[in-house]
């Protein structure tokens, strides 16, 4: 378990003090895939770097597996860092070493015998799906392959926690998907707790169970992904869930309109708009929509214009009220 309590981190700069993190409180359960999402400059990297004390917080504590990270001696900290490994946006592989030697690197640091290290490195190459790249140099690999090697390297010391700082941000969508699948597989098969730092909603949606939204150095929202994304409360959360702006305006004057919010029930098998037309003969028009699929659930909202005739509108509204997994409200133009 990772417990972050009252964490505050400031940077003294030329233009005064930057408060990068302010009173952060988070609990990350063992075996979880925990997302930390926020815009650029929100403090995500600083937060994740405070977990392994690459960055020393001014106030607060970080406890990993019962150990208070900030009070460890340098030697204890180095030992602990073998348990909490990290992958990066820019991969940060040793360019003058082969892939095999890159994976051996952390084992070399801890004094594992060479033959044993190479044996383990080969197994890890197998695990990340690149058994034929042992003797290739990082410069000969694609971005996705480099990240696979970085993941293998991060697993070399049998860590309990894997920190991923924008690990897929330099990759194209297909490669991102493949890397996320690999991270998920590692989480499931090896039971490693994963902390995923990202600015991309899609990453959190795809693999995270829980998420914290970071904005201006503060956690503005925190909880299960489906819950947070179906009812974004804070402005920061709304901006992330509806990057192009929530379907607000657009209601037609003189026409009854409702905003329908999908709360994450499996509504996909029974489409609302089509059901309205077929089952209660109410022809509604979609004025705006921003919905998405998270873990097979529909999230987001739609702005619907009800039928022009009063009776049709009443029927449609009654139908919506009974519809499972949604909430609604009437909106004025």
């Amino acid at each position: 378990m990772i417990e972050i309590r009252h964490l505050t981190k400031r940077f003294e700069g030329k233009n005064g003090t930057v408060v990068a993190l302010q009173d952060i409180n988070l609990t990350i359960r063992d075996g979880d895939i925990y997302g930390i999402i926020g815009m650029s400059g929100a403090g995500k990297s600083t937060l994740v770097r405070c977990i392994n004390m690459l960055e020393r917080p001014e106030e607060g504590s970080v406890t990993v597996g019962g150990k208070a990270m900030e009070s460890l001696t340098p030697a204890q900290l180095r030992a602990e860092r073998r348990e909490i490994t990290m992958i990066f946006q820019q991969f940060n592989l040793l360019m003058q070493r082969t892939c095999l030697k890159n994976i051996c690197f952390p084992m070399e640091l801890s004094g594992t015998p060479k033959a044993q290290a190479e044996q383990r490195a080969k197994e890890l190459l197998e695990l990340v799906g690149l058994p034929d790249k042992a003797n290739a140099y990082p410069a000969q690999l694609s971005g996705g392959q480099k990240q696979r090697i970085a993941i293998a390297r991060a697993l070399a010391t049998d860590p309990k926690v894997l920190l991923c700082d924008e690990a897929t941000s330099a990759l194209d969508p297909n490669t991102t998907h493949a890397i996320l699948q690999l991270i998920q597989k590692i989480n499931r098969e090896l039971g490693i707790t994963v902390v995923v730092i990202t600015h991309q909603m899609s990453v959190v949606e795809e693999i995270c169970n829980n998420v914290a939204i970071l904005d201006g150095g503060k956690v503005v929202e925190e909880g299960p992904v489906a819950e947070i994304f179906s009812h974004p409360k804070s402005d920061a959360a709304k901006r992330l869930v509806f990057p192009s702006g929530a379907p607000h305006g657009g209601a037609i004057p003189g026409r009854r309109c409702v905003r329908v919010a999908f709360n994450g029930s499996a509504t996909t098998d029974k489409p609302l708009v089509a059901s309205l037309a077929l089952e209660c003969q109410a022809m509604v028009s979609i004025l705006a929509a921003d919905t998405r699929q998270v873990h097979g659930q529909t999230l987001g909202s739609m702005l619907l214009a009800l039928p022009e005739d009063a009776d049709g509108a009443r029927r449609a509204l009654a139908y919506i009220a009974e519809y499972p997994g949604i909430s609604y409200e009437e909106v004025e133009a």
Partner: peptide, 15 residues
């Protein structure tokens, strides 16, 4: 030498 690579080594517990 890329600072990121040094940081990676630090994150792996290098002296």
């Amino acid at each position: 030498v890329d600072g990121g690579v040094i940081e990676a080594a630090q994150s792996m517990g290098a002296t």
